[in-house]
Design a protein around this nucleic acid. Structure first.
Lengths: 341, 341
DNA sequence: TGCCATCGTCGATGCGCTTCGACAGCCCCT
DNA sequence: AGGGGCTGTCGAAGCGCATCGACGATGGCA
């Protein structure tokens, strides 16, 4: 193993000088700097992470808590994780992966073992049991999602309330007067997952204020569940002309079921999805969607974290505005809009 | 911060005794052990990871290199990562996430900074440029996938060659005589991604030995690409009665395109997929599939790693046998099998 | 020419832990 | 009863680095 002493010897300087060359915390003459940097390169020196952590109480590691469930959108989680890793590397930090399953104790462990410098927590629930513990942790914490009482914690997420409203607004402007929301699986609501309830709120408010008929149903991922959900909705709301789908996983099943029923998109029924753009473009009928900016959220989360680590003490709550892209799956309803089944 | 000294004082013993209680590396009297354990609990002591790493040259961290590309199956990667994290935790290790994008240098960095005790590498290519470097690293390395020359490295993966054969065997036994393979996107082949070429080999060998007409096409993820691919195949192989799909992402598009063409599954054309079971069950017509055992591969990868860390020096190559589940999407071809387009 | 401030470098110290050798007490065997 | 082998505990050393105070050299100014 190459140590800082080896580098110092090779360069003919003291170890501390090497350290200062690396950290830049004291001024170094150009000559010495070049000497040291050459030795570092020649020897392939990398500071020992443990030693560095011990001496400086900084690990250059960010911990990220991800949900393992498959009833969430895996693609979105993955995209988020990917962009977070990349963003963290840009700040010379690594990413440690924790799972929500380990519970609050894992956060304690990571904090008091000084394994990471900060925590990022995904899949936050409205009354998340982890929040009080996180507050007590005195590590910087950034939540992806917004709990009911974020007091003192930084949060970042898509503004799902605005997203819900935006979907309704788009459809209402096209002339739709009866809209249904197909949401995440019942388990997601039951847990009180923050984004589900926020989206629903936006949907409800917008339909109410625009005097549009509204219905909403949670929906599990299986084809049967999708089918049953549609049966239910079409019976309960005979004049239904548009669907808002806040559940990426059911999209393929939903679209093929609609076709089975003889309902064309968008001629007979409009569909607007909340999903990543790549997913929206991938269907036979390209879907109008509100994008889930997982990548941007990941980047933002890391940047907020780095700001906290840099000394900024006031927590921020940042909600990203929704971006709606019209594609082929939404259109004005036809004058006679019922009974084509 | 609570240190080992605090615990030692509280328990009235020497710090080294506390260390031995924790590690179990020397015998401790029941009385002392209880005393120490109580103090640990009472004080909420967690050893400082950096100090521990420095003193013992063990980090209890496993690094996992994942591909970020979206042309791979995100769900499978995610499932793998999830099971790896869980398995690692069972051995009291944490998981550090690296991306393939960072290239071989990142592996160097992690190794020589002593950030992790071992490396697990996904998305291995047939002639992976990282392999020589990994060999020089003198950390335990486990590859997920099998390169051409794994000499000295441990590998674990689904036996894709056998999987390719199994798909053909299943279809041939049902009576199919003309089969097409729809593979991953061209970029995946171009990179020489190990599983793609291995599957293709199994497919080719089996069709040849069974005297079945075979065609194969890579296929990108877009709906247009799927459509073009089907056009191509149906023209080139008019007697085609079965598809092997080794590309989970195109399944929804493929199935709806077939329906558009008036081809029913399985009456007019059989479809067998290589995908996780959950995905196979999710379609309107449940798909016969060869399962991708991401979870088991993840667990195995961690266990192989732990074995290496425990001192086992001989690398293992472990290929998991394919498991084919017949569902609704495969059936014997109808006697008259052409011209229904 | 002499003094002080500044810049650049060095040595020493300690971060919290593991681990090794030492050693006190004990039991068992002869 | 005395010696040898265990068992259980302790103290000290050192892992590789960051950081602080010290200090020599240098330049500017009077």
């Amino acid at each position: 193993m190459v140590t800082i002493n080896d580098v110092a010897n090779a360069a003919g300087v003291a170890p501390s000088t090497v350290s200062y060359v690396i950290s830049g915390k004291r001024s170094i003459s150009p000559k010495t700097r070049r000497l040291v940097e050459d030795s570092i390169r020649k020897l392939g020196y990398h500071p020992h992470a443990g030693a560095r952590a011990l001496a400086s109480s900084k690990t250059n590691v960010l911990a990220l808590v991800v949900p393992l469930r498959t009833d969430l959108n895996v693609a979105v989680v993955m995209e988020f994780v990917a962009s977070a890793v990349t963003a963290a590397r840009a700040y010379d930090h690594d990413l440690l992966l924790l799972t929500k399953d380990e519970g609050p104790a894992a956060l304690q462990r990571v904090a008091s073992s000084a394994i990471a410098d900060a925590l990022m927590v995904m899949d936050v629930e409205t009354a998340d049991p982890r929040v009080p513990m996180l507050l007590a942790l005195d590590l910087p914490v950034v939540l992806i999602g917004v709990p009911d009482h974020p007091a003192g914690l930084s949060c970042v997420d898509l503004d799902f309330t605005a997203a819900g409203s935006a979907c309704v607004a788009h459809l209402a402007e096209l002339g739709h007067r009866s809209i249904a929301l197909i949401g995440p699986s019942p388990a997601v609501y039951r847990r009180g997952t923050s984004y589900a309830t926020r989206f629903l709120r936006g949907f409800d408010e917008a339909t109410k204020s625009r005097d549009v008929r509204a219905a909403s149903r949670p929906c599990a991922h299986s084809y049967e569940a999708v089918s049953a959900c549609l049966d239910d909705l079409l019976t309960a709301e005979p004049g239904l002309t548009a669907l808002v789908v806040h559940n990426e996983a059911v999209l393929p099943g939903l679209l093929s079921d609609l076709r089975h029923r003889g309902l064309r998109v968008p001629e007979d029924i409009s569909v607007i999805a909340v999903c990543p753009d790549s997913m929206a473009e991938q269907h036979a009928v390209a879907l109008t969607n509100v994008a889930i900016p997982a990548e941007e959220v990941g980047t933002q989360a890391v940047e907020m974290t780095m700001r906290r680590l840099a000394g900024q003490t006031t927590p921020e709550v940042r909600l990203l505005g929704p971006r709606l892209t019209q594609r082929e799956s939404t259109a004005s309803p036809r004058p006679c809009q019922s009974g084509q089944k």
